[in-house]
Design a protein around this nucleic acid. Structure first.
Length: 287
DNA sequence: ACCCAGGGTCGTC
DNA sequence: GACGACCCTGGG
């Protein structure tokens, strides 16, 4: 663990608010100077806008430049992708105009699995609090800028928590799901390293669905936010809402089947439906 | 005080 | 496929 600095010069399609407030991550918080601090697998990181540049500094157990490039998806050309998506229709154009600086983060697979199991029928403030409690109780402490931060617990560490322990930390009915899934991963009933290497989206989804608490929506979020599977389309209440309002026009929103939405996304946005989903979600929720 | 919704999933029919 | 239950919290 050592303190390191990296300066990213004039990146394209890069906006801290869009990246951290678009609903993909739960452990980044805004500071008084409008920079953001977050705990990731490799340590604690702070990002601050400085003119056209971004200053990253943090305490990490590996090279900061490599971590930032990987985590912030810097090898992907978003300008190009946004042009492609914008040409589909005016709604996409509008949503991209609103969330022009979104980047799909490349988060840790294990952390993403547990985080999105917790997200089920839950709201973002509470999801964040629960994850913080899991980390401060079962993660490792890191000192940074005079404050204490806690890494997300490893499967080994989280397996020390009983169902009752989890209930006390506020997980509610998700306690059993997190407990069981932790056990399954620890015992390698599902091999996460194997999933990371796979290039078959539907195979990965099939495996993830075996985990307790992971349904279609959560599996899609996991694939999009930690496995770079842009060819997936998580359908939640907001996405159902925006897709129905824009393209389907069913008076009773709940009646629109998930199958119909997924089919529409597939036809309209094909391989980049995950990115389209994120622009549409953020636009509908925050605009 | 009461109701509702929140990045859904699971068990049951 | 459709339906209800489910912990908990903040807001109307």
């Amino acid at each position: 663990m050592e303190e390191q600095v990296f300066i990213l010069k004039n990146p394209e399609s890069f906006n801290l608010i869009h990246i951290f407030e678009c609903g993909q991550c739960f452990r980044w918080n805004v500071e008084e100077d409008n920079s953001y601090t977050g705990v990731i697998k490799y340590g604690v990181l702070n990002v601050k806008k400085d003119g056209e540049n971004y200053i990253f500094n943090g305490i990490l157990d590996r090279n900061i430049e490599g971590v930032v490039k990987e985590y912030f998806d810097l090898d992907t050309n978003y300008t190009h992708l946004k042009e492609k998506l914008s040409s589909i229709d005016d709604y996409m154009k509008e949503s991209i105009k609103f969330g022009y600086g979104i980047r799909i983060l490349n988060q840790d697979l294990w952390e993403c699995i547990i985080s999105f199991i917790i997200s089920a029928n839950n709201n973002i403030p509470r999801i964040k609090k629960i994850i913080e409690r899991l980390s401060s109780n079962y993660g490792n402490e890191i000192q940074f800028n005079g404050k204490k931060y806690y890494t997300f617990p490893t499967p080994e560490s989280l397996s020390k928590a009983s169902v009752e322990d989890l209930r006390k930390l506020g997980l509610g009915f998700r306690d059993k799901r997190v407990f069981k899934t932790t056990k399954m991963i620890l015992e390698k009933q599902i091999d996460l390293d194997c999933l990371k290497k796979s290039n078959n989206t539907s195979k990965i989804e099939e495996e993830l669905l075996k985990l307790d608490g992971v349904g279609e929506k959560v599996a899609n979020c996991i694939m999009l936010f930690s496995l770079k599977r842009y060819d997936t389309f998580p359908v939640d209440v907001w996405v159902r809402r925006v897709i129905n309002d824009l393209y389907i026009h069913e008076p009773v929103e709940e009646k629109v089947s998930k199958v119909k939405i997924k089919k529409l996304a597939e036809e309209k946005f094909s391989n980049f439906q995950g990115l389209a989903q994120q622009y549409l979600f953020y636009w509908r929720r925050d605009a």
